[in-house]
Amino acid sequence: MSKKPSAILQGTLDLMVLKTLEQLGPLHGYGIARRIEQVGQEDLVVNQGTVYLCLTRLVQKGWIGAEWRRSENNRRAKYYSLTDAGRGQLRAETENWERITGVMDRVLQPVGR
């Protein structure tokens, strides 16, 4: 049976973007999209364009900041970085995610193990 890639869960893209920026520091949209693809390997399908919509939302919420800079290839690109509010939000979201996945793990565990 072939393994079909999962569609991304609603709301989880925000968490992925925040985590990526925490791990890699300031990064442009293409970099963020590539990083999420790499991490997801073949298990996750991300439409790269939706990353930009997610970035717009996060900037509006004040969780990330944005500024235009020169990239390593001397190309003008918009770099995003985590703000303090974003760091706090990431912590809260991570805890929430771990709690949910813990619950899901317990629910999905085979009985008797």
Partner: peptide, 17 residues
């Protein structure tokens, strides 16, 4: 304008890769 420029930068970087 900002959004268009960003998408254009994305396409340029992806094409180079």
């Amino acid at each position: 304008h900002d959004f268009d420029e960003e998408l254009e930068a994305h396409l340029a970087m992806a094409t180079e890769d």
